[in-house]
């Protein structure tokens, strides 16, 4: 299993809220191979962002705890890491790009100051070397006038430029794993196209692995090698990208793909999944999707389905049970 970079096993998280406790993710299981881009797709409340924050040890300590499972990064269990160990990991081995580039940059520091931060912490470099490294990485992500930009503040840049700065920040220490949490959701389509192209190219050049979190199936189709589909805190399906689009097994994935306007005749009624995404406190026994599923039967309401696999294609649905119903 040396080619596995990140492996998450049976991960469960508990949040304390004003009303009691909820489990935003339950029994999450997946792995990420070296050099691969793994997509994590889900809607709001699916637990996709919680999963990525857990990997980086960024969950709020007071109100959340890991109740089960493990996370292995390069064959080392990291859920028990101390703050200090996590700090060494973050920015160095694992970097993250967030959705909102404005709020993830500190407005009172110049771009150069923000970019030199991880280098100061993780690499021994002289000031000159640092500046050169920063200008280099800014040029790599296609920022014009890199030498001047380092003295400018975040608010002087456009949304697309800021996201480029975020990407360069993530790339500085040449991490092995790059986690992207909806990196293009806040951007316009033409800018999104630029950024996606850049990320593909950067990934190839640096030989990184990527965990790509998004709700947009189109972006997944463009970027990912394999996909994990999450719904209401659970993984419902894992498959290779073409396999997922050609032969989705879970009714939720099927429904999502069928409801895309491009998969429906113009002006016709779109296929749609009935009902609403459940709130975390509404999830009880059985399959979380059962109340919206057109194929649900008694067993679905009674018992949470395990993962059934067909080669590399996993799905958590009773319909996939080998001996049928």
């Amino acid at each position: 299993m040396t080619d596995v970079l990140l492996e998450i096993k049976n991960l469960g998280i508990e949040f304390k809220t004003g009303e009691g406790t909820v489990q935003p993710i339950r029994g999450v299981d997946f792995f990420l191979k070296k050099g691969e881009t793994l997509g994590v797709v889900g809607e709001s409340g699916s637990g996709k962002s919680v999963t990525s924050l857990t990997v980086l040890g960024l969950l709020p300590e007071k109100t959340s705890k890991i109740v089960s499972g493990s996370i292995h990064f390069e064959d080392e269990e990291i859920t028990h890491y101390s703050d200090r160990q996590y700090r060494k990991l973050r920015g160095n081995d694992i970097s993250m790009i967030f959705q909102e580039p404005m709020t993830s940059l500190n407005p009172v520091f110049t771009i150069g100051e923000q970019l030199s931060e991880p280098l100061k912490r993780h690499k021994k470099m002289s000031k000159k070397q640092r500046e050169k490294a920063i200008v280099d990485v800014l040029k790599q992500v296609g920022i014009p006038r890199a030498e001047q930009i380092i003295d400018e503040y975040p608010h002087q840049l456009s949304g697309g430029m800021r996201q480029r700065v975020m990407i360069s920040l993530a790339l500085l220490c040449e991490p092995k794993l790059l986690i992207c949490d909806e990196p293009t959701t806040a951007l316009d389509v033409t800018i999104q196209a630029q950024i996606l192209k850049l990320m593909k190219q950067v990934k190839q050049d640096k030989d990184m692995s990527m965990l790509f979190i998004t709700h947009d199936l189109g972006v997944v189709a463009e970027m990912c090698d394999r996909v994990v589909v999450m719904y209401a805190g659970e993984i419902v399906e894992v498959a290779e990208i073409n396999e997922l689009f050609d032969n989705p097994l879970h009714p939720y994935t099927k429904g999502l793909l069928a409801s895309l306007p491009t998969n429906n005749d113009r002006k016709s009624k779109l296929y749609s999944i009935k009902g609403q995404v459940p709130r975390p406190n509404e999830i009880g026994e059985g399959c979380a999707f059962a109340n919206r599923c057109p194929f649900a039967f008694d067993k679905c309401y009674a018992k949470t389905p395990p993962a059934f696999s067909e080669g590399d294609h996993l799905s958590k649905c009773w319909l996939q049970q080998p001996e049928g119903r």
Binding site: T190, Q192, Q194, K197, G218, E222, F245
Partner: peptide, 19 residues
């Protein structure tokens, strides 16, 4: 610039430069 709807779809893309 609209993302593809299937991974095997090849699209000739005009990527605009600048903002």
């Amino acid at each position: 610039a609209v993302p593809v709807s299937h991974p095997s779809e090849e699209r000739e893309r005009i990527v605009l430069t600048g903002d």
